[in-house]
Amino acid sequence: MLTGRDYVISLTVNGERHDIDADPEMPLLWALRDLIKLTGTKYGCGIAQCGACTIHIDGQPARACVTPVSAAVGTEIRTIEGLSPDATHPVQQAWIELDVVQCGYCQSGQVMAAAALLEQNPSPTDADIDAAMNGNICRCGTYPRIRAAVKRAAELKRAGEPA
């Protein structure tokens, strides 16, 4: 319940509006996880080092752990839960097809980073993939499969789009 001394922040997440009581400087990561209860976005480092918290803000990949909620007001925030209704985004399909995941903890961030890459670059080269995905740490070492799966996702995406 909101009272007079609360800060009310309005965020649009996956197309839905959420009014939350949060200090303006609260990182979006904790607002998403603790207040909006979308826990698919993960905490890994809190200092923009690991990419586990990667989300899209107005279509651009962003680190939720260093984005204050105040900076996200008025934007369209997309989290892993909103990437597709049923895990059918080409990146998700490719990830499942090539068995990328291990523990899975980094994978929300990996999938969101890859999805953002393909929006900007439908046919990424090896060097493009290395550059775009280098900010996302995976301690299980799924990198070789991530490389392959980004390419597979690009194929699936191109095949699924009207020519």
């Binding site: 698919g40 892993i80 839960e81 499942i96 068995d99 990328v100 995941v101 899975g104 999938v111």
Partner: peptide
Amino acid sequence: RRLDSRIKVNG
């Protein structure tokens, strides 16, 4: 294929 892939790519 792993049985836990789907729930690990959709959060």
